[in-house]
Nucleic acid binder design. Structure first.
Length: 300
DNA sequence: CTCGATCCCTGGACGC
DNA sequence: TGCGTCCAGGGATCGA
């Protein structure tokens, strides 16, 4: 489940592996998660990858302007463009030798000028790929919130304490903060001793400041350990991350809290499994969060 | 504004 | 072994 640290890890790996490489040709598999598949086939070949950036959970592969020997390219690629990639739940983007058989669920193959292929595989296809020129890209990125690693104390407090939504929902909301997902939301709330169902507006200034600080510490540490590999996250070198060993809340239902030994519980908050210590992270008064609707099925 | 429900998708876990 | 069922979750969307 690639969140900010995992995406940052992949982006760093790609920078080392494919920067400056030219895309020779593109082969597509299933394309229902690609904005405009034809645009990839038309506009990627001939361009080189000039930069790899991360924006929240997105990666941005900056493409060179094509200038094939003097004239304006026939396909109009004389303007800057980027390949926007979201890994969704199960997406992987990594180079492989072209001779190596493709993994199952490989949906995009970009042959590079050094005999490798940059391949995108994604079993569930919750990811997204889009070829975008400058203006559409800028519009695309407009709606996103602050970078959690950069956000100031004041801005963080404004974005959180000005809202009556649950803090868990706010942390997951990409228009509030870009890049935080379920794992790092739960980890930071545990470390800050804040219950996920608390309302943003009800956090004290001190709690908001603590939350911002621990969120940044956790994200930095997770990046240093190359992300969390829960089920199938692999970086651009095909290696798993290590941060899952440091999880204190996420996925630890029924295990004892590292601080107080109370058993970690799970509840659905903001529509997501949320793990917390019921003692360290006291529930807000009047909380109506059904701790786990049992085996709730579709209503009959 | 905020909420929950629903859908997308497949692999893996689990029950029988 | 093999089936059926449930579940995970980021994000879009829609109705309450």
């Amino acid at each position: 489940m690639p969140e900010l640290p995992e995406v940052e890890t992949v982006a760093r790996g790609l920078r080392r592996a494919i920067l400056g490489r030219r895309i020779v040709s593109v082969t597509l598999g299933k394309t229902d998660f690609i904005d405009d598949p034809v645009a990839l086939e038309q506009h990627l070949p001939g361009r080189s990858i000039e930069a790899v950036e991360r924006y929240g959970k997105f990666m941005l592969l900056r493409l060179s302007v094509v200038n094939g020997g003097g004239g304006v390219p026939a396909n109009g690629d004389a303007a800057p463009a980027s390949l926007l990639v979201h890994l969704g739940m199960t997406g992987q983007l990594a180079p492989s030798p072209a001779a190596q058989p493709c993994e199952k669920h490989t949906h995009v193959c970009m042959l590079l000028d050094d005999g490798r292929e940059l391949r995108y595989t994604d079993a569930r296809r919750f990811g997204r790929i889009a070829y975008l020129t400058e203006v559409p890209l800028a519009e695309e990125l407009l709606g996103f919130g602050a970078d959690p690693l950069e956000v100031s104390d004041v801005e963080f407090a404004q974005r959180i304490r000005g809202r009556r939504a649950r803090i868990k929902a706010l942390l997951l909301d990409q228009s509030v903060l870009r890049g935080v997902g379920n794992i790092y939301a739960d980890e930071s709330l545990w470390k800050a001793k804040i219950h996920p169902a608390r309302l943003g507006a009800n956090l004290s200034a001190k709690q908001a400041a603590t939350l911002r600080r621990v969120l940044q510490e956790i994200l930095q540490k997770a990046i240093a350990l190359r992300g969390s590999s829960i089920s199938d996250f692999l970086d651009a070198e095909g290696e798993p991350g290590e941060y899952q060993r440091h999880h204190r809340a996420y996925g630890r239902e029924g295990k004892s809290c590292y601080r107080c030994k109370t058993l970690i519980r799970r509840a659905i908050v903001a529509g997501r499994s949320s793990y917390f210590c019921p003692r360290c992270q006291p529930a807000p008064r009047g909380l109506k969060v059904l701790p786990m609707p049992g085996k709730k099925r579709k209503k009959s």
